[in-house]
């Protein structure tokens, strides 16, 4: 098998390893149902997952726990913008401005 064919085969396998978990319960839906207790617990999945994805990005710098960094300041600015104003684009502007501004000031 040529290297190019192996690569495309790998893409298909990685694609299956993505689509099968995503489609699992959506496709099985009619036949399989989770108990109500599990369904209630699953309501917390998005909040837990979003925080678990974002937290290392803004609290960890080069592998070390370092809460005082420009990214955390940027995130705080974005959260404040989202809490104070309705404009949906503002959190992105505020977050990026604080991140890049602080980096420019500190020369980091």
């Amino acid at each position: 098998m040529s290297q190019d064919a192996t690569l495309w085969f790998a893409f298909v396998l990685i694609g299956l390893a993505t689509t099968l978990p995503r489609a699992s319960f959506i496709v099985l839906g009619n036949r399989v149902s989770l108990p109500p207790v599990v369904q209630r617990a699953l309501r917390y999945a998005p909040a837990a997952a979003l925080a678990a994805i974002v937290a290392p990005d803004v609290l960890v710098v080069a592998g070390n726990f370092a809460p005082l960094n420009p990214k955390l300041a940027g995130i705080i600015a974005a959260v404040a913008a989202a809490a104070l104003w309705r404009n949906p684009w503002l959190p992105f502007i505020a977050g990026m401005a604080v991140l890049l501004g602080l980096r420019a000031l500190t020369g980091a």
Partner: peptide
């Protein structure tokens, strides 16, 4: 290939939870 598939599965495990939560 098996290591790539296993890595992708580990990264996508959250979607099983999401899929079950939104299936209804």
């Amino acid at each position: 290939l098996w290591l790539m598939v296993l890595t992708a599965l580990a990264l996508n495990l959250r979607f099983v939870i999401f899929s079950a939560a939104i299936a209804e």
